[in-house]
Simulated scan of single mutants.
Amino acid sequence: MKLQFLGFRFSGWQKQTNAKTLHDMVDKSLSFVFEGVNYKTIGVGRTDAKVSANTYYIQMFTDGLVDEVFFMNSLNSNFSPDFKAISIQKVDRGFNIINVPKIKEYHYYFSFGEKNHPFAAPFLVNVDEILNVDAMMKAAKLFEGEHHFHKYCTKPSANTIFKRVIDSCEIVGNDILTANFFPEKSYILKVRGKGFLRYQIRLMMATLFEVGKGNLDLDFIEASLKEDNDRKFLRNIAPASGLQLFDIELEL
């Protein structure tokens, strides 16, 4: 099932004790839809607290067939305004939403200068300093290709693979999210790849902010991606609210 959600008031996807999570809300909504039907849901991946998704998938297991039209209408009527179910389709029993090959595209929305209208907070991160966007655009392209991302991952496991490929990485003007309370100019960091490390996009964005402020240069980024980097993760992490899981291409 394909979903969209605004993650600003949630503590991420994964269920937690004493926290309001996206997965909890999905299952709670489903409990009002299903009567006498057992079900279980699995998400395509974790999201951080306050991170939103224009595209997200869950795999649902039930012990009964679902009338797809009725189900979608009922689910959307029971969802809070933070959620919307987009589509549903049957898959083979052997399908695994977590292991299926996929390409993810993340967007990070930001602006700089004068403080934003408070209504923009769930979507757009504002940096109060003036940023050199041209330098940030050049720096973003350095992340493309195969690199060693030790410095762009927090709390890795013993089995974490740091050598990853980023298919594309660019900063462009924002013409996707618009509102009359947005600043006149805002920007998007767009990143595409098959898999990302814990906090990777937010660590990349924080580093690009430092480039924009003049505190770091292109040489720093190039060195940070080499195999012989010091492998200590960077400390600056960009706020989560600007991050959006924009698209997922599943190989069904």
Rank of each mutant, 00 (worst) to 15 (best):
H23S: 14
D24T: 09
V26I: 15
D27P: 01
D27K: 08
K28M: 14
K28Y: 14
L30G: 10
L30Q: 07
S31Y: 08
F32L: 14
F32P: 03
F32V: 03
V33Y: 01
V33N: 08
V33G: 07
F34N: 10
F34A: 11
G36P: 04
V37K: 13
V37E: 10
V37R: 08
N38K: 14
N38A: 13
Y39H: 15
Y39T: 13
K40V: 10
T41N: 07
T41G: 09
T41L: 02
I42L: 09
I42W: 00
I42H: 05
G43V: 02
G43D: 04
V44N: 09
G45T: 09
G45P: 07
R46Y: 04
R46P: 02
T47Y: 03
T47P: 06
T47A: 06
D48R: 07
D48N: 08
A49K: 13
K50S: 11
K50L: 10
K50G: 00
K50V: 03
V51I: 10
A53H: 06
N54S: 15
T55W: 04
T55F: 01
Y56F: 15
Y57V: 05
Y57C: 05
I58C: 12
Q59E: 15
Q59D: 07
Q59K: 10
M60Y: 01
T62N: 07
G64T: 13
D67N: 15
D67K: 15
E68G: 05
E68A: 14
E68N: 14
F70A: 09
F70C: 09
F71D: 06
F71V: 03
M72S: 08
M72C: 08
M72R: 08
S74W: 01
L75E: 04
L75N: 04
S77Y: 11
S77L: 09
N78K: 09
F79G: 02
F79E: 04
S80F: 12
S80K: 14
P81D: 11
P81V: 03
P81G: 01
F83T: 06
K84T: 11
K84L: 12
A85M: 11
I86V: 15
I86E: 11
I86R: 04
I86N: 05
S87I: 02
S87M: 03
S87D: 13
I88S: 12
I88H: 00
Q89N: 15
K90T: 00
K90H: 00
V91I: 13
D92A: 12
D92R: 03
I97K: 04
I97G: 09
I97N: 07
N99G: 02
V100D: 00
V100S: 11
V100H: 02
P101G: 06
K102N: 00
I103D: 13
I103V: 15
I103K: 12
K104H: 01
K104S: 04
E105S: 14
E105W: 00
Y106N: 05
H107A: 02
H107R: 15
Y108T: 02
Y109K: 01
F110K: 02
F112E: 01
F112M: 00
K115Q: 09
N116Y: 01
P118T: 07
F119I: 12
F119E: 13
A120M: 09
A121E: 12
L124F: 04
L124W: 03
N126P: 00
N126Q: 12
N126H: 10
V127G: 01
V127L: 00
D128I: 12
D128V: 10
